[in-house]
Design a protein around this nucleic acid. Structure first.
Lengths: 185, 185
DNA sequence: GTCTATACGATGATAGAC
DNA sequence: GTCTATCATCGTATAGAC
């Protein structure tokens, strides 16, 4: 197993998806052409197809990268020793939103309504996020509010749902705030 | 001014956008071709281009139709004599969601991140909706809770924001629930 | 692995008959 | 106004040299 080679390969793949995400943020998932990504990444068509089977594969990898990054940040709060109260949790989640990622994130929502592969990624991310928010809220109820663990998990349900929803809505607001820089249609 | 002719024209335009919305719901804004819409509407290419300058124009009209329809339903609650309390208002808003429109609605959010014309439509609709929710909540505070009108408007602010956000999130959940029926990528 | 050049298909849009 | 037939363009993906 040539680890170093694999690491290099993964690095190239990341370089490509990062360039792709910037393009998607500007021009959208579908209106971004492979040529756009070659220009943004400095690489060539052939190089991109050496790392990704096709465009759908690249879109999928990019979507996964963006969504996983957001979920990862959330996980830190969920595992915190001093869990924030729901309002504080929401405030931190919102503070962590990056406009570029927000735009691509919202684009993936639209794409998820038709594209099964993207649908699965989005749903898995949202579900995973809900679980983490739920954990964080439960921990807060137990450790700070001193609620019985058994009861806390149940009471955390509607709170977690509310925090998640408000966060998703804010993601949408953020994506709509920053003006489209370059596009047509 | 030939009213009757204009009415017929408007009817044809509506017929086309309705077929378009069904296609968009299945295949997405960009992946829907003019050929798809001719098949769905039973009309021909030429007929469509006789009523819409180009595809962007048709997408715009369809997006406007879908979003305006949702906002219109909301307006009825806002003007009600016996305004519902926030939880009830939210419940009614959610109950009125149609899966097909939810999918197209979420697609327009993604499109709004790049397409200025769609962006303006989406933002205007969301802003208008917020105003109506705000009116409804204010009316509830005044008529049911007997809050002073001056104070009610101010107190309605965060409540309206919460209702709107929870509603938008639920729109997303709905759009993600119904599986994609036919697509590729 | 990365490049350039190119083949092939799809699709938006138009022309012109009826 | 509506149709069919057609054009022109664009974009994905591949081939083959280095």
């Amino acid at each position: 197993m040539p680890r170093l080679t694999d690491a290099r390969k993964e690095l190239r793949r990341a370089q490509i998806t990062e360039a792709a995400v910037r393009c998607f943020s500007r021009n959208g998932l579908e209106r971004t052409s492979i040529a756009d990504i070659t220009a943004e990444s400095g690489l060539s068509t052939g190089s991109i197809y050496a790392h990704y089977r096709n465009k759908a594969d690249l879109v999928q990898a990019s979507a996964h990268a963006v969504l996983a990054k957001r979920a990862e940040a959330l996980g830190a709060y969920a595992r915190s020793d001093t869990p924030p109260d729901p309002d504080e949790l929401l405030a931190r989640l919102i503070a962590g939103i990056d406009p570029v990622e927000a735009r691509v994130g919202v684009q993936t929502w639209g794409e998820a309504t038709n594209n099964p592969a993207i649908h699965d990624i989005v749903v898995a991310t949202i579900d995973g996020m809900r679980a983490m928010v739920h954990d964080s809220v439960t921990a807060w109820l137990v450790k700070v509010e001193h609620v019985e663990p058994a009861e806390a998990a149940e009471r955390a349900d509607p709170i977690a749902h509310r925090v998640q929803s408000l966060y998703l809505a804010h993601l949408l607001y953020t994506a709509l705030q920053s003006p489209a820089e370059e596009t047509a249609s």
